[in-house]
Computed example of a mutant assay.
Amino acid sequence: MNSIIRRAGSDITEQWRRFLEGDLGSWLRVEEYREDGTLVVKAEVPGIDPAKDVDITLVGNELQIEVRHEEKSEHKDKRGYRSEFRYGTFSRTVTVPGPVDEKDIRASYDDGVLEVRIPVPDDAQAAARKIPITRGTGTGATGSGTGTEASTAQT
């Protein structure tokens, strides 16, 4: 299975890759949406200290979020003593549309919700633009000599 995933490379989304590898337990569930030219990524991660337990890094066009969570509870009564430990690392990689400077990314933590805001280029700026085609030999030559082929192709 891993060889199939390696051959497919980045064509498989993170959710499918983790599902195929059986790694859903360490997957950080997030909500993603766009708001006023900003990609907003939110994750519910209550009971953590964001200064110690969260790492957010930008690698190329991928934002990597890693959260470590540790919880300890103890219970003492007449019958004895019981303690429980729960811990784990949860991560998620989000593809960022377009080039982003890490200095422009903002992260906050409030009431158990981690929020990351990433500015993205306007869709209007990223709109498709038609590329003119000139007729000719296909080697970059301008054509057969009259010049009318290039002017009609650019309309």
Score class of each variant (00 low, 15 high):
149 E>F: 12
154 Q>T: 14
18 R>F: 04
145 G>E: 01
142 T>V: 08
147 G>R: 11
36 D>K: 14
115 E>A: 07
6 R>F: 07
45 V>L: 00
25 G>K: 12
66 E>L: 15
5 I>D: 02
64 Q>C: 07
51 A>T: 12
85 F>W: 14
145 G>N: 07
17 R>Y: 00
135 R>C: 11
98 G>I: 13
17 R>G: 02
74 E>I: 08
52 K>Y: 14
2 N>T: 03
145 G>I: 07
61 N>E: 07
134 T>H: 12
113 V>E: 13
111 D>S: 11
2 N>V: 03
132 P>A: 00
153 A>Y: 11
66 E>K: 14
23 D>L: 11
30 V>S: 06
134 T>Q: 11
134 T>Y: 10
66 E>T: 13
26 S>N: 15
155 T>H: 08
32 E>Q: 04
1 M>Q: 03
100 V>I: 14
43 A>V: 05
131 I>A: 00
136 G>V: 02
18 R>I: 04
117 R>Y: 09
9 G>H: 06
56 I>F: 07
5 I>R: 02
80 G>E: 07
22 G>V: 00
137 T>P: 02
141 A>K: 07
141 A>E: 10
60 G>Y: 05
1 M>C: 01
141 A>N: 07
116 V>L: 04
9 G>K: 03
124 A>S: 13
49 D>H: 12
98 G>T: 14
87 Y>N: 10
71 E>W: 14
14 E>C: 01
103 K>H: 08
1 M>I: 02
98 G>S: 11
42 K>R: 15
92 R>F: 09
105 I>P: 04
101 D>F: 09
95 T>N: 05
101 D>E: 12
119 P>W: 10
108 S>W: 09
30 V>R: 04
56 I>L: 10
34 R>P: 00
134 T>L: 06
94 V>P: 00
71 E>N: 14
122 D>Q: 08
74 E>W: 12
56 I>D: 02
45 V>P: 02
129 R>D: 02
87 Y>F: 13
29 R>W: 12
114 L>Q: 05
106 R>L: 10
67 V>A: 01
71 E>Q: 12
77 D>I: 03
26 S>M: 08
27 W>D: 15
10 S>W: 02
90 F>E: 04
155 T>M: 10
99 P>M: 09
70 E>N: 06
5 I>T: 03
6 R>L: 10
31 E>A: 09
91 S>C: 06
106 R>C: 05
108 S>P: 08
